[in-house]
Nucleic acid binder design. Structure first.
Length: 434
RNA sequence: UCCGGGUUAGCUCAGCGGUAGAGCGGGUGGCUGUUAACCACUAGGUCGGGGGUUCGAAUCCCUCACCCGGAGCCA
């Protein structure tokens, strides 16, 4: 009888059994009479052992000389073995080569430069470190969906093609849309979520966004995933609470389900375990005072750069909200503060360890006249915002929302040096291949 | 876009005015428990493109292309 196909993640439940393995050989070591095949199958990594005595000469020679990334079907006994790093290994007694590479596999066990790795991203994702990072990404995205589902939010998929509205003009990708004229790739789904929250109360989205910014740093992607939420009747305080609960939930889900992945990539798990509710909070004006004390040449009305953000965040072991920024340096739609209209009811959430802003949120202006005034102040074409202004005409209510940068969150949770490893196929300033 | 750094063997890099090097990977052989396995032998290069200086350029200068790091902007 043909043995059952078992995935590596389930090997521990099949000790002593004859099973079938389907996957790839990612490395091998061989001596004269024993060969060690390092195997992977998409659920994990395990070592296979083939002894000469179990094969005819020709087959054993084939095993000894097997090329990296050969795809194989193997059969053998799963054994508990203290000498093996995972405590289980596969004692092979049958091999079927599905496909043997004609050329040597480009990614070797030694070091590679980032240009070479990015050029080979389509196969780099087979490597252990990338595998674990992308598994964590998978968990982060699952956690986001679960959080909103458990809290009665409705998923609203906002469009990728949009008209010429958004937070800021200049940074959009422009495309021809048949005879209609120009359309733009979405920089945000916020304005659509604002419309949807007036229909469904609590809404969220999760999808790619595009910024034609010539940003070239370890925190920027041209195409990145954003998770946005918008809630009718929520004010600043409720908005903040929602944000911190979400981030707390994500971190805990990763700790719960991906601790092994975190350890495999060398992440200091203790640092993530220190993340607790509530998060720290600091008002923009106090942040400026703090920065002045630290020697930064900055005054009310200046925005914070990377160094300033890092200085603020590095005081804390968990994320910190910076709230109530000056109206002048923030987007047109943010609701001014009642006590001081020079600042708006907004917040940025800064991740610890210098990872910078992972969330930007605010209370939205819900009065039509004030919104028009702000559009004009920001030199935005009021006529393009007609449908957005409509939302303030029919039963307008205060509402608040935010956007979470998915890759920045992953980069922080994984402790990555660069955001490009947080997405399967990154689009950066000078790279769209593969 | 600006400021730095870089482009030499399949990969990672050294060489920085006098005939092109190492480690890894590849090939061949050896080894019964290896863990980026090890040991021996071996093949492999228009030194990113173009132009210039020089008796002589991978090396110095100019230029173009591409990549990397950072800034601004932002998630």
């Amino acid at each position: 009888m043909k043995p059952n196909w078992v995935y590596i993640k389930d090997f521990k439940d099949h000790v002593g059994e004859l099973i079938e393995f389907r996957g790839w050989v990612w490395n091998k070591r061989s001596s004269g009479k024993i060969a060690f095949l390092q195997l992977r199958d998409g659920t994990g990594f395990v070592q296979g052992v083939a002894e000469k005595k179990d094969f005819d000469d020709e087959t054993f020679e084939k095993i000894r000389k097997i090329k990296m990334e050969t795809s194989v079907i193997l059969r053998g006994i799963v054994r508990k073995d203290e000498r093996s790093p995972l405590n289980v290994e596969l004692s092979i007694n049958y091999i079927e080569i599905v496909h043997e590479p004609k050329e040597d596999y480009p990614i070797s066990k030694k070091e590679h430069g980032i240009d070479f790795l990015m050029e080979n991203r389509h196969i780099w994702i087979r490597s252990r470190r990338q595998f674990h990072i992308l598994k964590i990404r998978n968990e982060v995205i699952k956690a986001i969906r679960d959080f909103f589902n458990e809290n009665d939010f409705v998923l609203i998929d906002t469009p990728i093609f949009t008209g010429s509205i958004g937070e800021s003009a200049g940074n959009t990708f422009e495309l021809d849309y048949f005879d209609y004229g120009k359309v733009y790739l979405a920089q945000t789904g916020q304005l659509y979520l604002e419309a949807a929250c007036m229909a469904f109360g609590k809404v969220f989205n999760l999808g790619p966004t595009f910024r034609a910014e010539k940003s070239k740093t370890r925190r920027h992607l041209i195409e990145f995933w954003m998770n946005e939420a918008e809630v009718a009747f929520y004010r600043h305080e409720e908005n903040i609470k929602l944000q911190e609960s979400l981030v707390y939930y994500i971190v805990n889900r990763v700790l719960e389900n991906c601790e092994e992945d975190l350890r495999e990539i060398g992440r200091d798990v203790d640092k993530l375990q220190k993340v607790s509710l509530p998060f720290e909070r600091i008002a923009y004006t106090d942040a400026v005072k703090f920065l002045n004390k630290k020697g930064f040449d900055i005054e009310f009305g200046d925005d914070f750069g990377a160094d300033e953000e890092t200085a603020i965040a590095s005081q804390f072991e968990k994320p910190v909200f910076v709230e109530k920024y000056p109206r002048k340096i923030k987007a047109f739609y943010m609701q001014p503060c009642e006590e001081n209209p020079e600042v708006v009811m907004c917040d940025d959430l800064l991740a610890p360890e210098g990872y910078g802003e992972i969330i930007g949120g605010s209370e939205r202006i819900w009065d039509e006249d004030l919104l028009i005034e702000r559009l004009l102040e920001c030199n935005l074409p009021v006529e393009e915002y007609e449908w957005y202004l409509d939302l303030r005409k029919y039963g307008s209510v205060p509402h608040s929302g935010f956007g979470l940068g998915v890759e920045r969150t992953i980069a922080w949770i994984c402790g990555l040096e660069h955001i490009r490893e947080a997405i399967p196929f990154p689009r950066t300033l000078y790279r769209v291949y593969p």
